[in-house]
Write a protein that binds this DNA or RNA. Structure first.
Lengths: 212, 212, 212, 212
DNA sequence: CATGAATGAGTGTTCATTCAT
DNA sequence: AATGAATGAACACTCATTCAT
């Protein structure tokens, strides 16, 4: 009985802890996305989450630590939904489209996280860098692999895979950033966005590749 | 004679001024590129330029003013070098390649400025925003115009011009950022970089455009 | 019990806060009185109050805000103590004397505040101005009203009320400033000061009013 | 001849010097009057006088030195026009009125200087203090003497001379300050101002001195 | 576990004064 | 004599982090 009560208490406390934690993360994501990391103070975050100053540091090591956890969430969710495409499978471009669609879904369902990460620059703080490098490295490897596979199977042209992979990542980032931050009022539907991205990436612009 | 002496003195003073100014701009560009705007203090800049605190404010209104001037330099140099492409001219893709080559030249000759600008986020400080918006707006207009013209002349496929223009800008930014910051040791030659960019942008990835 | 403990803690914390606050206000009043607003830096104040830099801004918005609060204290205490004089009452000059005595008391009990306010000039900082205007406006209205009432009842001569009210204020200010700052060693007693002020204000200098 | 030429040059140079000096003094008086000593920078002064930075320090030791010279001008002009009143002369109150009129004239003819001095507080900078003390001491002595003389001759009542002298000075200062700074639009004529001051000072407010 | 008062290093900026030309 | 570029100490203020309660 006593232990059950204690468990009950512990459970309630645990739930409370989780709620607080989530409140802080959500508030921070929103603020970081809206005003950037530097312009968001710990005060802003604890005010928005309605949590005391000291409590903040019970949940996170530092402002940087909070940011890293948020970034972790985002990169994790993206990496979860990206699947290796088998170029010799029955429908490789369909698989690519599925990947893009799933990414678009994660992005649209985590706007604040996305904007926050897209805004963060590489090369400034070591820990952030390390994580972002891992993330973009993962994406780049995925894309490079697909490009090489595609070329090997005669599906795609032979291209400078590292450059093109980087370019594709940049293209995707910019399109998302544009529609989430700069001109959110003109945001297309998820489906049309996914198709435009794919269309652009796969087919390029020339009417016939032989004319260039 | 007297006036010549005076002129000589004035000219020498003027030259000295210009040297100081340049020292400050160069030092600042390097620091902003390396550590970002927020992590670079005025103290860092004046230490690097070996100039006193007060002198800094003789040359620039504020830290923001300095940043804006640097950004101006970069955006100005890029915009100087981009020419409208006539899709009905004798060699439109050649003209595009020339544009890309000139941009690559400006970027490689102004690494610090490039990195500094590429790192700067839109949506945080109004004055910076305004200028960046103008810059990217200019690029986007240029690209959209080219896409529409190309489509009208039957040179390129009809695409969602705004999205594709945005994607192209992102692709270019990421490639530059990657080669200047993330993996400078793997930087390709200017020429191969220009060609890869063009190749990617114009031709896409699929072997035949009909296969998508 | 638990709540009592909590209350006790809260109360103790509250008292500590109030002590700090008072230390800052007192230190600042003394420094402002002695060296003036401009020559007193925030560093001076926090050194005198033995408080850290950040703590200062926990209690006051700004150096200006601190000054305004001090001014508020003084003007408030004076205005609390001034009563409208009924010229048709049984002893109007007695009531005036009471007012003067009460003012003298506030002044002598708040030397630093008095000196600080008397030294502050109108016409330089808007917020200070506003408050000083209200204060002197209050005094002027009081005096003008008394002069007009007095004249209506045949108690005083008809005078240029606005000018005379201003002159009386100046007279009082100068006398206080003189005795508090310039020659504090010759300071008369409160009583004799009050009487001299009144004597001067009410009766003027001529032996007989008919001789001027 | 040569010496005449030199003299001519010297004279011209001297005149030029004097003109510059005057330009600086005039500009400074205006700025000090309008914005106060602390809010007026050396830059403001040299801009207004159209003189270079270095030149300023050829004419004045420091910003403080400039202020002292201006104060000197004002106190000198006032002290020049104040004459000792002979209480046993044929028209002592007439002489007092003449004094007041002359002071009013100096004040109205040197508004900037007057405002500047009236705004300056005693007790902050030693050199300014010394001079202001001399000035107000002079006025006070003058007034105290007159009061004692007047009382001795049976012209005025016996009053607490030091207090009343101080009060009179304060009254005059406040009235001038009020009409020059706070409400210049309601400024009375010189004559009516002089009369109001005198009327107030000499006759006080009570209808009959016996009724108080 | 939760609190919020306290901290102090650090920020961008100003300005009276100096001095080489 | 005249200039104006250069100086650097000083300023008001911020904010991530700590810790006694």
């Amino acid at each position: 009985m006593a232990s059950e009560t204690t468990d009950g208490r512990t459970a309630r406390a645990e739930a409370q802890r989780e709620r607080r934690r989530e409140a802080l993360l959500t508030a921070a994501a929103s603020l970081f996305a809206q005003n950037g990391f530097h312009s968001t103070s710990v005060s802003d975050v604890i005010d928005a989450a309605d949590v005391s100053r000291g409590t903040f540091y019970l949940y996170f090591d530092s402002k940087d630590g909070l940011f890293l956890q948020l970034m972790d969430r985002f990169t994790g969710r993206i990496m979860e939904v990206v699947r290796v495409v088998d170029p010799e499978g029955s429908d490789p471009t369909g698989e690519i489209l599925s990947n893009v669609r799933r990414i678009v879904d994660v992005v649209f369902d985590n706007r604040d996280l996305t904007v926050m990460v897209l805004r963060e620059d590489i090369g400034l703080r070591p820990e952030v860098d390390e994580q972002l490098s891992r993330f973009y490295g993962f994406l780049r490897d995925m894309l490079e692999g697909a490009l090489l596979n595609g070329a090997r199977c005669g599906l795609t042209r032979e291209v400078n895979a590292p450059v093109v992979a980087t370019a594709l990542i940049g293209a995707i980032k910019e399109v998302f950033l544009h529609h989430l931050v700069i001109a959110p009022e003109h945001a297309p539907t998820r489906e049309s966005l996914a198709e435009s991205l794919l269309d652009f990436g796969l087919r390029g612009l020339l009417l016939s590749p032989d004319r260039g």
